[in-house]
Design a protein around this nucleic acid. Structure first.
Length: 287
DNA sequence: CATACGTGGGT
DNA sequence: TACCCAAGTAT
């Protein structure tokens, strides 16, 4: 038995029944879920995903809306530029692909907000294509099971990608299943903090466990600060715009953040990003 | 290659 | 409480 075999067997039994994994989700459902899941946990995505697909069942439906409605519907998922990019991706799909989410990696990769991971994930999960799908979960599983290390490096290395490619089953549908299964294993068992090795189907084969689960050596991973940052300020300002259904006066917006210099900087960046627009006079709204 | 970019739940 | 971190992308 190999890590791949036991993981596929485990997945068949333990996979979560997530809405974007159902056949009726389609490629559009998969694409929407991938955008929302970029750096955001499953349980927070769930309700927003459901509402999103009910409102915009096809890419063309979203493309026909203003980008501001996408930002509003995005709610508090975080990183609202993703909502803008998903809206732009929907427009590109409507224009260039006849309203159908493309199946080719290169075409997916060319869409706004679709990077290497998302292009591989959509091609794999929605269309059963054979791609190395390297998200944080898969990377951790590979680091442990095959490289004997607690954590993968900060960015994907050539060696790491080569390993992932070498592992890919020949049969595309099986490769796609392995992508989903290894991701699920990383999410549920081979977790970052307290891995549940006792419940892991690959425990006997795991290089990291065989080595005695050595601690990560090297520089500690960079933590992300948030409190008091420009990011938090942007979030506070945007929350006001999301809740308002008409342009708001600058005064109202400024009441959301005390530091004048910081909120000025934040508002300017929101305008630059296209997350906010200045309307008549001194008023602001979603685009 | 490092950094900016939201938010909230778990420990 | 403070810190960690969650299906990344663009610059």
């Amino acid at each position: 038995m190999s890590v791949i075999e036991v993981t596929l067997g485990w997945y068949a039994e333990h996979r979560r029944d997530l809405p974007w994994r159902r056949p009726e989700a389609g490629a559009w459902g998969v694409l929407v879920s991938e955008f929302m899941l970029q750096q955001t946990p499953v349980n927070r995505v769930l309700p927003v995903y459901q509402a999103w697909l009910e409102r915009w069942p096809k890419p063309g439906d979203l493309a026909a809306e203003s980008s501001g409605e996408a930002v509003r519907a995005w709610g508090r998922l975080g990183y609202p530029r993703r909502a803008l990019r998903l809206h732009a991706a929907a427009a590109a799909i409507a224009e260039r692909h006849g309203g159908v989410v493309p199946a080719e990696y290169e075409e997916l990769r060319a869409l706004p907000g679709v990077g290497d991971y998302t292009a591989a994930a959509v091609a794999s999960f929605a269309y059963g294509r054979r791609h190395a799908v390297l998200d944080t979960n898969v990377r951790r599983v590979l680091a442990r099971a095959y490289s004997g290390e607690q954590y993968p490096a900060t960015s994907v290395s050539a060696a790491e990608r080569a390993l992932a490619v070498s592992l890919l089953p020949e049969e595309p549908s099986r490769a796609a299943a392995w992508a989903a299964a290894s991701m699920e294993l990383g999410a549920l068992i081979c977790t970052a903090k307290n891995p549940r090795c006792a419940a892991c189907p690959a425990a006997e084969l795991c290089a990291w466990r065989k080595a005695g689960r050595p601690e990560h050596t090297g520089p500690a991973r960079k933590g992300q600060s948030y409190a008091g940052t420009d990011r938090q300020c942007r979030g506070a300002l945007l929350a006001v715009l999301r809740q308002a259904h008409a342009p708001v006066e600058a005064d109202v917006l400024f009441a959301a953040w005390a530091d004048e210099a910081q909120r000025g900087r934040a508002l300017r960046s929101l305008l630059e990003d296209g997350l906010a627009v200045r309307t008549a006079g001194n008023q602001y709204s979603l685009p």
